[in-house]
Design a binder for these strands. Sequence first.
DNA 1: TTGACACATTCCCATATAGGAATATGATCG
DNA 2: CGATCATATTCCTATATGGGAATGTGTCAA
Lengths: 120, 120
Amino acid sequence: MARAATTSDAFNAIAEPQRREILVLLRSGELAVSELAHDLGMSQPQASKHLRVLREVGLVQVRGSGKQRLYDLDAGGLRPVHEWLGGFEQFWTESFDRLDDYVQVLKQTRGEGLSNDDDR
Amino acid sequence: MARAATTSDAFNAIAEPQRREILVLLRSGELAVSELAHDLGMSQPQASKHLRVLREVGLVQVRGSGKQRLYDLDAGGLRPVHEWLGGFEQFWTESFDRLDDYVQVLKQTRGEGLSNDDDR
DNA sequence: TTGACACATTCCCATATAGGAATATGATCG
DNA sequence: CGATCATATTCCTATATGGGAATGTGTCAA
């Protein structure tokens, strides 16, 4: 089997750098396809393709406005991804925590009993 | 061009469900390849392949222990991904914020001047 | 050394791209 | 209706899978 389809879920959809850039741009508000394509320096068909993927996983919404199609961010689908990653947060703050613990231990030891050589 | 390689970055590496499961399992501590393969119901070669990808993007570390190879989580590489997603956090809390604002407005209006019909 | 065990890699296949070019579809205007 | 602008889709190609099967590599014990 090949890799899972990009349209399968948000994890796959945001694996593509250009799609991430699209999402970032849309944080400022609705944008038409040609505006996105221009801002990101990609062709119009490519922009449409990426937007289709984002639409299929529910990360953007479309709205017709005359000849244009305005895409709007619908970031709710990113929440589960963010939360999944949050489950690992302790692992990158861990080293600091350990350092803190060590500092605490030092403090306690210092104020404890025999206060002979406190440095070295 | 084809899709970006799964080994290109953490975004691509975690696009694969089985690799995400591996990372979750490793939160509990080091595990050997065969243990991972068994726990996730996948073949040993598949486990090795996924672990290789995770190793190449720096999400796990290996350590030889006799005939076994113990894989350990190195979640630091997930931090940038988590932070990127954090940039969208406002968009899924937004609706609640708006609701709060609305409630504030109601409260102010109520306590303001003419206190005629306060409900409807 | 030989055998056994734990992993890693290679080979092969079906599938899914991302990108460029060309074309189709939709909406608006005269 | 016909022309035009804005998008969407299709066709094509090169590439990168993920999975199964087979095989290579490394380590340890007898």
